[in-house]
Each structure stands twice: as structure tokens, then as C-alpha cells.
Simulated assay, not measured.
Amino acid sequence: MFFDETKVFLKAGNGGDGCMSFLRQKYMPKGGPNGGNGGKGGDLILQADENVSDLRNYHFKKHWKAKNGEPGRGSDQNGRGGDPCVLKVPMGTEVREMHSGDLICELLVHDQEILLLEGGKGGRGNATFKSSINQTPRQFTEGKIGMEGEYKFTLKTIADIGLVGFPNAGKSTLLNVMSNATPKIDSYPFTTLVPTVGVIDYPDEFKTLTMADVPGLIEGAAENRGLGHRFLRHVERCQLLLFLLDLAATDGRNPCDDFEHLRNELIEYDPSLGQKPFLVAGNKIDEESTDQYVREFNQRFPGIEIIPISAVLEENISLLRKKLIEELN
């Protein structure tokens, strides 16, 4: 299972209480105050980690708490501060307040840290209240309560290229051919149920590009039909969209109509996705009757170039690789 959304309850540590104590030694029956301060509660910190792939750690364990500060002791001993609780999340994680829905932060870069909840301050021991007019203070303060809250973690995949298409268009096959990724490949729709990110290597340019294979969309995805919103959010952060059309019309759909539907679904979900640069590739040119769909596409969308490819036979893959890096440069 791939977990890209979860709800959690988080709490920072409480501060330790201050201590009320007086020095009592031989020949010093009435020593001064020596109660120490309480330790500060541990903070709750979020850290982005490129080695964490999803939010499964927080799906099965919903409550996370930092350590409390220790109370102060006599002999002017201050309590130890509580250990922080560091939660490692995948890059691209969005954190929202559970009830209001307000965006708190986003973690986009490896090792980025966010102080989400601050631990409570430690209480004051009675030694800190000593003065010339109060030489035997008996007052002390309790530690402050640490911050807490309920939050919603949402993962949005970070990649240079978002691979978008209907089920059975050959997206996983294309990703497998072009990159080091090994997604599950089969001949039935919705083989891919989770986003897969592959790295496309350009050794001559000394560059690499990342491509995300988003699970197949269906009509009405923008209205959250199927798993629409869960899939569409993974293309929000992509710099370039690659629409992959099935020129063989395997499921009886016209690939030109598919392109219109895909564009409309993205724009209805988020109008800014309609402004992103994109390329169009037509897959399965090794099948019969693909030429007629290429001609129809050129007639219906004269300003848009379609790149005919065959992912299985690796035809025109080098041309597609070249177009991708040119568009991103």
C-alpha cells in the first residue's frame, strides 16, 4: 500500500516544574534557597528526508509526543530539557491544521526542518525569587504546557515531468523504457495504483530529469470520481506535463477525445495546471490504424505537435527524450 494522506495528533513536551528547596547542612541550619529551575519541554520538529517514500509511519501510529522537561531539584540543580521529537516525512509533504484546513508548511527540500510545535518553558525554582527583602522565598512556578494540535499530512510528488494519461495508455511501459524505474506492467487498466518516480539520465548533458507516472485518470476525476483528487494532486508540482495517448484505441476511445478530456480534467481541478507547458506523445504506433488518429489530431489541434512513439519497440524514444530536455531547458 502507498499512503499519501494521513491525520495525526502531535504534542510538544511540557516544561518541568520549578523546585522549592533550602540549604540544610551541618552548622548551617538556616541556609538560603537552592531550588533549581525545571527543564524546557522537547520541541516537535518535521524533517524532509529523501529516503522516506510515503506517510506509512504516521498512518499506523497517529499520536506523537516529545519528552517532557525534568523538574528542578535541590542544591541548585536545574532539570534536564526534554528530547525533541523529530518526524521524518517525504519531500513534498504538505501540513494543514485539521479543523481549519489552514496550510501550516510544506517540506520540499532534503533535510529541510520546520519547528512545528514548541515545548513548554520550565518553571522557576525558589532560588530565582531570592532578593534583599525576600531572603527565604517559598514561591516557585510550574512548567508550561507544551503546544499540541491535530494535523493532516498530504504528500504531493515532486518531479520535473508528470506523465498523464487514461488507463492502459502505456505510461508504466514508457517510464520503464526511459528511466531506471520498474513499475508493475500488465495489459489491464489501473495496473498502476500509486505514483512512481523514475530518473531519466542524460549523460552527454550531465543532467538527470525525474518523471512521475501518475495512475490513470478517468472522466470526472476533477470531481473526485474514482480516486481523482488523490491522483491529480501528484502533478501539481511538476514543471512539465507529458500527455500520453493510446493511438491504438485499445479500449475503444478516440485518442483525440482523450486529449481534450485530460486537459479539461486538469483545468477543472486547478486552473493553474492549464498554464503549465506540456508535450503530447502518441503511443502504440506499432499497432494498425494509428496513422488516421495522428492525422485527425493534427487537424483538430493544428498548433500542437504530437510525437508518435512505440514504448514496447522503443521507437522514437530518443526523439521524445530530446524534446523533454529541450522543453525544460
Rank of each mutant, 00 (worst) to 15 (best):
L46R: 08
P308A: 12
R253N: 05
G146M: 09
N68I: 03
G125Y: 09
I161D: 10
L279E: 07
P33G: 06
Q135W: 01
G123I: 07
L247K: 00
L320K: 05
L262I: 02
R295L: 13
E236G: 02
M98R: 15
V109H: 11
D43R: 04
T93V: 13
G18S: 07
K26S: 13
E288T: 14
I317Y: 09
A48S: 10
L193M: 14
M211E: 04
P271M: 02
S100M: 07
G282N: 12
N180T: 08
L245K: 10
L44H: 11
E113G: 03
G18E: 01
H63E: 12
P137F: 06
V294C: 14
K322W: 02
T136S: 13
G220D: 12
T141E: 10
S100C: 06
I200G: 08
F243V: 01
I309Q: 07
A48C: 06
P189E: 12
N264T: 11
G35V: 05
K61A: 05
K88I: 02
M28D: 11
I285K: 09
G143V: 08
L116R: 10
I218Y: 04
N134E: 14
S272W: 00
C238Y: 03
T208V: 10
C105R: 04
K130M: 15
E148L: 09
C19F: 00
E296V: 04
P84Q: 05
D246W: 00
G42W: 02
P29A: 13
N134R: 13
K152F: 02
G81M: 06
G42K: 06
P308Q: 04
G39K: 03
A212E: 02
G282R: 10
V312K: 14
N14L: 06
L55W: 03
L245V: 08
L115T: 09
H59L: 15
G79I: 07
E113D: 01
P90S: 08
T191N: 09
D111P: 00
E296L: 11
P215S: 11
K30W: 05
L244Y: 03
R233G: 09
A248K: 06
D257P: 01
E296K: 13
L245G: 12
L245S: 12
K67T: 09
P29T: 11
V294F: 05
G149R: 08
R124T: 04
A169L: 04
G303L: 08
R24C: 09
L175Q: 06
Q112R: 09
I317T: 13
L175T: 07
G38Q: 05
G252Y: 02
R80S: 15
D286G: 10
D54S: 07
T210E: 07
L117I: 06
I185L: 02
T250A: 10
E5P: 00
R56G: 01
D49K: 12
N57T: 05
